[in-house]
Design a protein around this nucleic acid. Structure first.
Lengths: 158, 158
DNA sequence: ATAATATACTAAACACCGTTTATTATATTT
DNA sequence: AAATATAATAAACGGTGTTTAGTATATTAT
């Protein structure tokens, strides 16, 4: 079925156009000062169209947040080959900083714009990718502890 | 002039009524979800009345923020008599925690609701009381350093 | 006491906002 | 060619912060 393939492709392109515009405006103006109407005008579609692709304004931030974390998760893969847990943690810290400085937009999206998201309603929603990253970090610290590092520390206090 | 004294007093009472209501609602619902109309309804006045006493919604948060910091500044006075800078800093830390736990509302107003204020427009505005508190802290740490504490540290990294 | 003036307040409007509904034009299938 | 599904939208709903124009009331001056 070539037609439904194209349809699916077009739908994905529309989603991208919306997300790219939302990302630009969120980073430029901040979440609160960005309006759905503004995004609609930017992509030259009616505001209602956005609601055919996303549940609401929160969903836009959520989708971008998720994408940013997927991107960030690759950082973990980069250091996965390092055998020693402590060295792996150090390398991860370095990669984290590298990521933050070379992808300032994504970084802002992930951490600086987290507050508005929590302040609104999402909070306990899926938020899967973020949790995965956190759990990976937790596991790594636990591995370090098993090797005798951070003797006095408690993971749950992070 | 007794009359203008009473007028001034009445004006101050109105300001208080507005601020008390705003404080209650900000803490209950958060800044964004609190509406000027809601505050107006709570005090049983028209929304327009609020604008006779405060420039805008931001100004309400700003006034409360300021009051909270004035209150917090008293913590500094409490420990001012301690001669040794380092002991003074330790005592201040203790007082800080005491303040946070015994005035949770003010504490939240000062620190947790700071983000919305910065996210909006105030940012580089007066913000005097907060700056004073910070400068007093900085001076105290400097005094500690003069006494040989925190040798490797740099104040500007706080 | 009465007229003029200043004060406190409000109803209504303005220009936005996020979101939903009903409708129309277009593309696909039958 | 007719029926159906899809995509987009115009218009509306109920909200927001804020401003404006107008109205009572209280104060001052005559």
């Amino acid at each position: 079925m070539g037609i439904s393939d194209r349809k699916e492709r077009e739908r994905e392109e529309m989603r991208r156009r919306i997300l790219d515009s939302a990302k630009k405006l969120f980073l430029d103006l901040g979440y609160e000062k960005t309006s759905v109407r503004g995004i609609a005008e930017d992509i030259e579609y009616s505001p209602a169209t956005i609601y055919l692709y996303f549940k609401d304004k929160n969903d836009l931030l959520f989708a971008l947040h998720q994408e940013a974390f997927v991107e960030f998760a690759k950082t973990f893969e980069k250091v996965a080959t390092i055998a020693d847990p402590f060295e792996r943690l150090v390398a991860l810290g370095r990669e984290y900083l590298t990521f933050a400085f070379s992808n300032p937009e994504l970084y802002e999206l992930m951490f600086l714009l987290t507050a508005p998201m929590e302040a609104l309603e999402i909070k306990e929603d899926v938020w899967e990718d973020g949790k995965n990253v956190y759990m990976a970090l937790e596991a790594l610290v636990a591995a370090c502890q098993a090797e005798g590092h951070f003797k006095g520390a408690d993971i749950s206090e992070l």
